[in-house]
Design a protein around this nucleic acid. Sequence first.
DNA 1: GTGGAAAGTAGGCATTGACAAGATCTGGTG
DNA 2: CACCAGATCTTGTCAATGCCTACTTTCCAC
Lengths: 205, 205
Amino acid sequence: MPAPHTTSYHHGDLRRAVLGAALEVIASEGVAAISLRDLARRAEVSHAAPAHHFKDKAGLLTAIAIEGFDLLAAAVDAVPAEEPHRLRELGARYVEFALGHPAHFEVMFQPRLLHADAPELTAAKDRAYAALRAGIEDLPDARRTQDARRAGLAAWSLAHGFATLRLSGGAPELDPDPVTTFRTLVTPGGGERTAQALAEPPEGV
Amino acid sequence: MPAPHTTSYHHGDLRRAVLGAALEVIASEGVAAISLRDLARRAEVSHAAPAHHFKDKAGLLTAIAIEGFDLLAAAVDAVPAEEPHRLRELGARYVEFALGHPAHFEVMFQPRLLHADAPELTAAKDRAYAALRAGIEDLPDARRTQDARRAGLAAWSLAHGFATLRLSGGAPELDPDPVTTFRTLVTPGGGERTAQALAEPPEGV
DNA sequence: GTGGAAAGTAGGCATTGACAAGATCTGGTG
DNA sequence: CACCAGATCTTGTCAATGCCTACTTTCCAC
């Protein structure tokens, strides 16, 4: 590893530097504000240097998305199997990841900005989805519904929607910590039976 | 109203033409693919003409977002008060709107692309949110939870997340119609008690 | 009709993404 | 140690875009 900030011809770790700068810009100003030339300036290299590491602007964003899916997989993989409220915990980790890595999250679900068919991307996506599925399908028998896919989709939608709304400034901040808010949303008897209210059973008043 | 397609100096309704073209482009290629000059070409006017109607690129997107919030307000406003599964129906309408107006929906929740503090935008947003809130808070007493805000946030998150995942190609297509899928997610006894699975009550196996 | 505002045109400028061709460094191989 | 292939970075260029200013044409209210 060369000295980090000499005036050497080679940067040392330009790839990481550009990724880092990109994450900062996206987090503070959004993906639309990303410019390869600006990132090059921040890293103090020539305007074409980043292209040698990412090929494209889409390539850069693809790299971020890949990193994001791997981070997500790691985050939900850490949920212990013996956790009594495992599905709830899974959702909480999902929300925690989204709010903790807003730049990654913003890019991951915008396939039109990426090289959506890049093998490394689909691989990372598969790993993340596998980790999520594992957390759902490994529930003890009594907790499994007839159609686990729908339960999983519902849980995913809830966590994803909450995180998205929170990040876009839509959802109100009801607690000091957003993850706490999320937990109350899926915790019956935690003061309010929101899940039941959601289901709103048909049998009368 | 002048003749629509003569070679007259004035277009007739350039504003609407640009909006329409923009909606098409966004729906098929995403917001990132929007270019004022391209829209001008499609409308067969000079490259600077659209600016006289929207000021900015952000101004154009703001106009789309405003239209979107008004469409949303209209969509959820149509839910009859006597509807027995009103909250569920509210969510279904939300999802139906999102999937039926993907371009509007894509822009509405990306404030960084808009003139977020434009009075007309916040007004439209307020109208839409008021319509949504009305559908939640008007629930009959027995259906009301202690904290209606959390129930509303949960419902909103679920609908928003489902729509978002569906549009980004993340969620699997379990039924011919996505709205049908959404209904099953919030319908207990509709084959699976997904809502209960979500809540996953703590009391043992 | 006429004058001013609205609608549209024309040109220019800085910035950007992508590409091509060349310069420089690095690591391994003989 | 010499050397070379490839990775890394630079420089220059081109078309496209957003936005600005100045100008022209049309419409409408008085």
